[in-house]
């Protein structure tokens, strides 16, 4: 029995003894803590409108911005995370070619949330779909359920993450709509980085917002609308 072990036991013993009292007082103090933000409101529905006519084939600026913002490696191996990707599509019958970014569509009825056994996949009141990595056990059922293949699994240990964007081995992750920026009044990195302003971000519920007005006046579609998930991301010119 070494000296340090004995001391450690003692330390543990006192800690356990104090715990019961401590938790109660902790909860009280917590509720009166200062400096909290309001929190996500269900009056808001964050969304994006992507104008495929403005999206240039070969341009990858939104992807690069996302990788920088969220600390992704930018690798494109099958085991690398890709929160946003450019898809080049070509109409087989007409030959018309288009390019567009694809990411988590932040559905109103997200299948990933339905299937998650631990409620780790969740939708915030303002419509942002997130993975609560404190709860994610890494079963990958959400990746099987997502129609947009929007999610990635972290296959390796992560280092030097952005302090605003936690990412860790063994959990699933996807586009957060840059929630850490939104909560301080900013907008997603991809939307900011697009040189042609092809990605409009805003509150779909606010009739005065640019996005709501545009969705009201121009034709836009949701991808895989047949599944009736009502995604918050819409595409124009498809």
């Amino acid at each position: 029995m070494s000296e340090i072990d004995i001391q450690r036991r003692q330390f543990l013993k006192t800690s356990v003894g104090a715990a019961a009292v401590a938790i109660a007082s902790g909860m009280m103090l917590y509720s009166v803590a200062q400096g909290k933000s309001e929190g996500a409101s269900s009056k808001v529905r964050w969304g994006m409108l992507i104008d495929t006519n403005q999206c240039k084939p070969g341009c990858n600026d939104c992807v690069t911005a996302c990788n920088n913002e969220n600390g992704l490696s930018g690798g494109t191996l099958p085991t690398d995370s890709q929160w946003i990707r450019k898809i080049e599509i070509k109409d087989i019958s007409s030959g018309r070619e288009l390019s567009l970014p694809m990411m988590c569509q932040h559905c109103e009825h997200p299948p990933c949330v339905d299937v998650c056994p631990t409620n780790a996949s969740m939708k915030r009141a303002d419509g942002i779909v997130l993975v609560d990595k404190h709860r994610c056990i890494g079963c990958r059922y959400c990746m099987m359920a997502c129609p947009y293949k929007a999610r990635s699994f972290v296959h390796e240990a992560q280092h030097d993450q952005n302090p605003d964007v936690p990412r860790g081995k063994g959990t699933v992750e996807s586009c957060t709509l840059c929630v850490h920026r939104i909560d301080v009044g900013g907008k997603p990195a991809c939307s900011e980085a697009c040189p042609n302003k092809a990605i409009i971000f805003g509150d779909l519920n606010d009739p005065n917002s640019e996005i709501a007005q545009k969705v009201h006046s121009v034709a836009s579609v949701q991808i895989r609308a047949d599944l009736r998930l009502n995604p918050g991301v819409r595409y124009q010119g498809l």
Partner: peptide, 8 residues
């Protein structure tokens, strides 16, 4: 109805 390609 579209031909599709991407990095993912």
């Amino acid at each position: 109805g579209y031909e599709v390609s991407s990095t993912f």
